[in-house]
Design a protein around this nucleic acid. Sequence first.
DNA 1: CGTCTTTGACCAGCGC
DNA 2: GCGCTGGTCAAAGACG
Length: 549
Amino acid sequence: MDLVPKQEQHKEGEEKEEEKEGMILAEHSNRANFGHGGGGGRMSEIKEVDFFSTGGARRRNGDDDDGDGETGNREAGALGRGNTTVNTALDLLTTAAATPVNGGEGTAAARAASDHNKEAATVEGELRQAGEENRRLRRMLDDLTRSYSALYHQLIQAQQQQQHQQQASGAANSMLPAATVPAGLQFVDPRMAPAMRAAAPAALDGGDRGDSDGGSGSAGEADHQNSGRSSAQQEGSGTPERDENAERAEAPLRRVRVSVRARSEAPMISDGCQWRKYGQKMAKGNPCPRAYYRCTMATGCPVRKQVQRCAEDKAVLITTYEGTHNHQLPPAAAAMAKTTSAAAAMLLSGPAASRDAGALFAGHHVAAPAPLFQSYPYASAAMGATLSASAPFPTITLDLTHPPQAPGAGLLPHRPPALAAMPFPMYGGFPAAHRPAVPPQPTTVSLGMVDSRNRSALETMTAAITSDPNFTTALAAALSTIIGGGAEAAPRSGAGANGDGNSGSGGTEPTATAAAAGALDKGVNNTEHTLTFFSREFLAQSWWKDWKQ
DNA sequence: CGTCTTTGACCAGCGC
DNA sequence: GCGCTGGTCAAAGACG
Ligand SMILES: [Zn+2]
């Protein structure tokens, strides 16, 4: 109870100020942003952050130093430098050093007292060292990236071949785009998973999808009540076709969920999107309630997220995203999304995944995974994630709670953590695309097994990276987009109507027939597997960069 | 007055 | 069929 209702409430009170800072990007509603600044920055915790806003980001840098931020920052900085021109980023990394050194002070000090001079000198020296280290790291990174790319390409090729074979054989059920969705077989919009599932049976029986659906009103009451919802769920009479053929193409059977575990005192981490709370429930086995939010950045955006605290450790906030955004995402968010989605794609697919990945990308901006990678040579970071297919929905879990046992200090910079061996292919996932189709045979996933070495490296990295609140938040943001992505999808022309409740009516989202979904669903589900992957070519770096800008 | 949160009610899926 | 649970709706209230 403590957390529950209160969260929201106090947020309002406190927030305001901070909100403004962060809110830059959102013109929509001033308060949309839930986050509130949260307490003073604690390094391990994520405060509500709005990394999207440039201003915010910048500010953050400053703020962070309040406390421990430094460690995190420094590390981050190190990463960032990798491929960036570090300016701002650097501020971060050297918060400590920077201050003293920075311009004025140094000089002033010089004149004033020799002591200061010495100090300045020392700091400079440190800076220099840091710079060198940076260079070194960058070089290593480049090497890694190169080798990685090479491997990646090979992998892609292999996957493609495999994919072809599979398609040839299994064809039908795969999520291929059906130009026209055959009688309710193809389930177009992955986003509305739940609804679809529910609807599925009806759809099947009812026969064709789409248009008729609305009429059929399998849902009975629901239908008219909420046009928005009904349309969404049932597929909307609306316009099945929007350019989103792509969507159909993908036919994700089940929706994939991505959950992020991170430490945060804030009731919710802001991830760049606007969310509206539409429900709260006490979940069984957890004293803390689970809050349900839906994306309100665009009317009709089907993306939802659940926020809940971990029962065992209330400091851990578990945010679960599902659905695909049907609107444009803030640049920063998009950038991150790419990276993150890549991770997701990776997870989702194993080798088998390759196929999925292909499906995912198909129809969207991205034609194939391969190119993606290049597009997003996004940095290197490591993150641990697990994918579980056991649940009704495949769920990717990114655990960013690794205890900051990492002495922060030297983590990143000093050792290129086991990055050395990068077992996995990176798919440049595109957020938009991301339709996590469920691989018909999840079990086949043989992605990477993480051996203990990698494992530990991963943890180390994770700890280091995650020690910075910004990173965590960003990741969350990315995830929120990853899942969704239709950045391209025509932005919903939301009618002026309030995003509120039902109003969604105006928008007829591209929806899908649940039928297929349901059917496939069953087929796929029972396997459970967990993959832990360790990837080095990841996020952090670029993200940092982006944020700063 | 419009928007957003709160919260009880409702619905569907699932296990017994 | 019944009860439980997760997820969502929507009326009512709060807020600016
Ligand atoms: Zn959205």
